[in-house]
């Protein structure tokens, strides 16, 4: 899971001007309070999305997840009846939602309480975006999620995208145990050259 570094309009790398996006045939679930869903709906309608499932509660959202195949879930972290974190964790792990188990998920939050940090990290979301949302930030995250190459992994405690974004190899001086571990880079000091 990753947290967006900024939430301002100018905080993200510019997207190539010729790039196109087609959300006309996507099915997107938006979960937030009434006004939050309105805001997200207007953003996604501006993007050209036509099939938007709107929900104000986690319970209603789970019914939608159970009944439809989705291409993206965008949920607020703090819902009336349940955490958005729990919602995503359930989608990733409950066999009832197998058809949506790998659906990209973005969690929105204005502020993450200290007590929820672990939950946020472990819920299996692809991205964590700080509110207030802006069209630019949401667009960048959609494009990022659509292009991302991370593997999914499943353990007893976690199901979701690999949380390691960069393969830094084994620590210096350590031989990696896995086949894919790269050899640690050798640093040359001036005396060695």
């Amino acid at each position: 899971m990753s947290k967006a570094a900024t939430n301002g309009e100018g905080g993200s790398a510019p997207v190539k001007s010729k790039a196109r996006i087609n959300l006309e045939r996507s099915a997107i679930l938006l979960v937030d309070n009434a006004l939050g869903v309105d805001i997200l709906s207007h953003i996604f309608m501006g993007f050209g999305a036509r099939t938007l499932y709107r929900s104000n509660t986690a319970a209603q959202a789970m019914e939608i997840v159970a009944g439809y195949q989705l291409d993206l879930i965008v949920t607020e972290a703090l819902l009336q009846d349940r955490d958005g974190y729990d919602l995503i964790k359930t989608v990733r792990s409950d066999p009832e939602y197998e058809h949506n188990r790998f659906v990209p998920a973005i969690i929105l939050s204005a502020h993450t309480a200290v007590s929820k940090v672990n939950k946020a990290r472990d819920c299996g979301a692809n991205f964590f975006v700080a509110k207030p949302v802006s069209p630019r930030v949401i667009m960048d995250r959609i494009l990022w999620v659509a292009r991302e190459q991370r593997q999914f992994l499943q353990t007893d405690l976690y199901a979701g995208p690999d949380r390691r974004f960069h393969d830094l190899g084994a620590p210096p001086g350590i031989v990696g145990r896995r086949r894919e571990d790269r050899a640690a880079p050798i640093e040359l000091k001036d005396d060695d050259q």
């Binding site: 997207v15 196109r20 087609n22 006309e24 501006g46 050209g48 990209p104 630019r136 494009l143």
Partner: peptide, 22 residues
């Protein structure tokens, strides 16, 4: 990645246009 397949279908909008429309 179903989202990746959907967003790259022909048609749609320029990204900049989509952001402005939003």
């Amino acid at each position: 990645n179903r989202l990746a397949k959907v967003v790259t279908l022909p048609g749609g909008k320029l990204v900049e246009t989509a952001v402005d429309d939003a």
